[in-house]
């Protein structure tokens, strides 16, 4: 197994008055798509900036591809897209890209060739119009976002770090970004991105780390996380419950913790220690007219809610996106 792309050990970052990141450790294996999840203010951006050596941790160590993250040559193998994005407005697009490329050690004809390839790939250059020759502020917002992607990926980084990459993207660019992430993964690159949109993360990530208030809540492969948080929720549908036998069973608090009764549809949360099999057996035994009995796969959003509780969810937390 190769060195992990990112290895964070016991990192702490304090600011005047509060702790932004508290004893955080995580491992991003090489070649995976890794999600850093959490509500706004959880410490995601601080963590990412520490990985990139933009800010220094007060305690702990961070290694990238087996080297300390202060190593300049290693940092050149990273590509970074910050949450707040922008470009030099008055500069010609191609010059901006040349500049960003040269900051990563690219130069000359090789750099120009890569710029051309990317402009073509993201349809910023065609027979009719070469946006590479335009000034940045002549471009639409969507096109500027594309230029920003190019700047991040121009030097074909081994590790790509994206901070809230989906915020502010139009649907077309959001899709293009997802495609790009999948493509990077296929080519063996590592992608680490932060998001507060759990749905995106659930579909894209191989592994995740959920943090809240600067602390790690859980981490691991998405499949493992889901397995470890086996379903405690059952979706139940009945063909009428005229004699009330089903409701009788559901009222048993040793079996069921909570019921969302929607007349013919029930969302049932199992009581601690009770199993879904037991509930099913009891319902069948009492002759309840079952139409559907399904163990609901927990979403990352639900897992997060279960672990942190609604109190941990501050403004900006969302299960949809």
């Amino acid at each position: 197994m190769s060195e992990p792309a990112v290895l964070i050990r016991n990192v702490v970052k304090r600011y005047a008055g509060h702790v932004a990141v508290r004893d955080l450790s995580l491992t991003v294996p090489t070649g995976t798509v890794y999600g850093l999840l959490g509500p706004n203010g959880a410490g995601k951006t601080t963590t990412i900036r520490m990985i990139l050596d933009i800010i220094l941790p007060d305690e702990g160590t961070i290694t990238l591809l087996g080297k300390p993250n202060t190593d300049a040559a290693t940092l050149d193998r990273l590509g970074y897209l910050p949450e707040e994005r922008g470009l030099y407005k008055k500069m010609v697009v191609r010059d901006v890209l040349r500049f960003l490329g040269s900051l990563k050690g690219l130069s000359g004809a090789g750099l120009d060739r890569r710029i051309d390839e990317w402009l073509d790939r993201l349809t910023l250059r065609s027979e009719a119009k070469d946006w590479g020759k335009a000034k940045v502020d002549e471009l639409s917002r969507g096109m500027q976002q594309k230029v920003q992607f190019i700047g991040t990926l121009l030097h074909d980084p081994e590790v790509v770090i994206l901070d809230e990459p989906f915020s502010g993207l139009d649907p077309i660019n959001a899709q293009a970004l997802k495609d790009t992430v999948v493509d990077l993964k296929r080519r063996g690159r590592t992608v680490l991105f932060s998001t507060h949109l759990m749905d995106n993360a659930e579909r894209l990530c191989d592994a995740v780390c959920i943090i809240a208030k600067g602390e790690k809540v859980l981490d691991g492969r998405v499949a493992d996380v889901k397995a470890a948080h086996a379903s405690r929720t059952v979706a139940l549908a009945l063909d009428g419950d005229t004699d009330g036998v089903a409701r009788e069973v559901l009222a048993d608090r040793t079996l069921v913790a909570e019921v969302d009764d929607q007349n013919t549809f029930f969302e049932v949360r199992l009581a601690p220690g009770a199993g879904a099999q037991e509930l099913l057996a009891r319902l069948v035994q009492r002759g309840a007219p079952l139409r559907r009995f399904e163990l609901v796969q927990p979403s990352l959003h639900q897992i997060f809610l279960d672990k942190v509780g609604a109190k941990g969810v501050e403004a900006g937390m969302s299960g949809h996106g």
Partner: peptide, 13 residues
């Protein structure tokens, strides 16, 4: 203000 700064200092000290 254009937020270019963060991209730049991720590459340059």
């Amino acid at each position: 203000m254009t937020r270019v700064a963060e991209v730049i200092i991720a590459s340059v000290k």
